[in-house]
């Protein structure tokens, strides 16, 4: 369990004050993955550096299982760091050492005796699917394999928390999926609290149980993935279930509405119910269906034909349990 409370980081650039983090509060329970998503400049890098305690936050606290990392002094901090494994975007392996040497490094720092260390390294390399590659050098591995080594190294000291900084941003889509699945499997197996910082929505969709939206150093939205997606009109919901652009010519002669609902096994699909109720067709101009966090979400932009009140359709959809609203103009996003 990692708890971050009111974390602030202020830089001074001459007389200008830059609030890179402006009171970030979040907590990640054991055996769950929390995603922090944000555009560049949102404060993600600063947050990673403060959580990994590479930079001291200006104020606020970072607690792992009740131990406050921000309060301990340098010597203690080095020990406390072992509770937190960090996976970097570029893996940041040491090129001068073999794969086994890289994974052994944190164990050397922890003064684990050699025989025990070797056994642990072999076990970790098996865990990440690189049991045979111990004697190779990082330059001989692919990007995905290097990231696997990075994960093995982060897990070497049996941390309680795994902090992943853009772990797949340097990887191709197929490798990204493999690495994300590996992180998910390790979380389940070791019961870790995992924090994934990313700018990619598909990372959140694939492995996160909960998610926070970071902007201008603040958490704008946060919550369980299933709740966040269902929050109709919220930024995260829009981003996680992005609607593809529609053909503007199809929009003519009616009013556009947007609808979002979680699929249920009972009754007809909500749009079908509305079509039957009003005796009209509701053509779908664009839509997306995704299975996220155990729930299937439908989101669509539909045209209510002229002659039928779009407000009434929206009202009806609300009654049957679908969030709906008039579309924000004809703007194609």
């Amino acid at each position: 369990m990692i708890t971050v409370t009111d974390l602030k980081k202020v830089y001074h650039q001459g007389k200008r004050e830059i609030r890179a983090l402006d009171g970030v509060t979040l907590s990640v329970p054991d055996n769950s993955v929390h995603g922090i998503i944000g555009q560049s400049g949102a404060g993600k890098s600063t947050l990673v550096r403060c959580l990994a305690l590479l930079d001291r936050p200006t104020s606020g606290s970072v607690e792992i299982n009740g131990v406050e990392l921000t309060a301990v002094h340098a010597g203690e901090l080095r020990k406390a760091r072992r509770r937190l494994g960090v996976v970097f975007q570029q893996a940041n392996l040491f090129d001068s050492q073999t794969i086994a040497g890289n994974v052994a490094y944190p164990l050397e720092l922890a003064r684990i005796p050699a025989p025990e260390r070797d056994a642990k390294v072999a076990e970790l390399l098996r865990l990440v699917g690189l049991g045979e590659s111990g004697e190779a050098y990082p330059s001989q591995l692919s990007g995905g394999q290097r990231q696997r080594v990075g994960i093995a190294r982060a897990l070497a000291t049996d941390p309680d928390v795994l902090l992943c900084d853009e772990p797949t941003s340097a990887l191709d889509p197929a490798t990204t999926a493999e690495i994300l699945d590996l992180i998910g499997a390790i979380k389940a197996r070791l019961g870790l609290a995992v924090l994934v910082i990313t700018h990619e929505m598909h990372v959140v969709k694939r492995i996160c149980d909960s998610v926070s939206l970071l902007e201008d150093g603040r958490v704008l939205e946060s919550g369980l993935l299933v709740e966040t997606v269902g929050r109709f009109g919220s930024r995260l919901s829009d981003a996680l279930l992005a609607l593809p652009p529609h053909d503007p010519t199809e929009a003519a002669g009616g009013t556009l509405i947007e609808v979002l609902y979680a699929a249920t096994s009972d009754g007809p699909p909500k749009l079908t119910a509305a079509e039957r109720h009003f005796g009209i067709d509701l053509p779908v101009l664009s839509g997306t269906i995704e299975h996220l966090a155990g729930t299937t979400f439908h989101r669509a932009r539909v045209r209510v034909p002229a002659g039928t009140s779009a407000d009434q359709v929206v009202g009806f959809l609300g009654e049957v349990g679908a969030a709906a609203a008039l579309s924000a103009g004809e703007v194609v996003r």
Binding site: L54, L77, Y105, L109, A110, T157
Partner: peptide, 10 residues
């Protein structure tokens, strides 16, 4: 990044 990694590992 390598120095960050070394630092982060304690």
């Amino acid at each position: 990044g390598k120095l960050d990694a070394a630092h982060a590992m304690g």
